[in-house]
Amino acid sequence: MGIAVVLFAIYFLNVFLGAVAGNQILKDVFEMLVLAASTLFFVIAILKSEAAAKKSKN
């Protein structure tokens, strides 16, 4: 989950700087890749969490 949070923070910082200061750190393609990686790590963390909860419940 930590990797997903860090990647999303990078994405958010890039969008925020683009909106406020008008300069982006990442280009569009890299921004998309960071968001996709963040989403992927988030989904993996949630699935692992659900599997652990299901295993401990049984």
Rank of each mutant, 00 (worst) to 15 (best):
L7A: 07
A45E: 10
A4T: 11
M32S: 05
M32K: 08
N23Y: 12
N58M: 15
E31M: 05
L35T: 01
V6P: 00
E50D: 04
I3F: 04
A37G: 09
V5W: 05
N14D: 14
V34C: 06
L35H: 03
E50S: 13
N58W: 13
F8W: 08
L17W: 03
V5Q: 10
L40I: 04
N23I: 14
V43S: 06
F42Y: 06
G18K: 08
A37P: 05
V34H: 01
A53D: 10
A52T: 12
L35I: 06
G22F: 03
V20R: 08
M1P: 04
A45Y: 14
L40H: 02
S38P: 00
A52F: 07
F42E: 04
A36P: 00
L35K: 05
S49P: 03
L47Y: 11
F41M: 09
E31G: 10
L40W: 06
V6K: 07
A4S: 13
V34L: 05
A19H: 09
V5N: 10
G22P: 04
V15N: 07
D28K: 03
L17R: 11
I10F: 15
A36W: 11
A21M: 08
A19I: 05
Y11D: 06
G22E: 00
N14S: 12
L33N: 02
Y11H: 09
F42L: 12
T39D: 04
L47K: 12
A51N: 11
M32Q: 09
V5T: 11
N14K: 06
Y11C: 09
G22V: 08
A4Y: 04
S38D: 00
L33G: 02
L40P: 00
I10S: 08
M1H: 09
M1F: 10
A52M: 11
E50L: 15
I10V: 13
G18D: 01
M32G: 04
F16D: 02
S56M: 15
I25F: 08
K48A: 07
N58G: 15
A51M: 09
D28M: 06
V5H: 14
A36F: 09
L35F: 15
A51V: 15
A19Y: 05
F12S: 01
A45S: 12
K57Y: 13
S38A: 12
F41E: 08
A4G: 11
K57M: 15
A9S: 14
T39N: 02
L13N: 04
I3N: 04
V6Y: 01
V5S: 08
L33W: 07
K57H: 13
E31L: 02
Q24I: 11
K27S: 03
F12W: 10
T39L: 13
G2V: 08
I25L: 11
S56R: 12
S56T: 13
M32Y: 10
Y11I: 07
L17I: 10
A45F: 10
K48Q: 03
N14R: 07
L26V: 03
N23M: 11
L47D: 11
V15I: 10
F41W: 06
V43N: 03
L33Y: 07
D28N: 01
F42M: 13
A37R: 00
L7H: 05
L35E: 03
K55S: 11
N58Y: 09
S56E: 14
A37W: 05
V29W: 11
A4E: 10
K54Y: 14
V29G: 02
F12K: 06
L13C: 06
S56Y: 14
L33T: 07
A52P: 04
G22R: 02
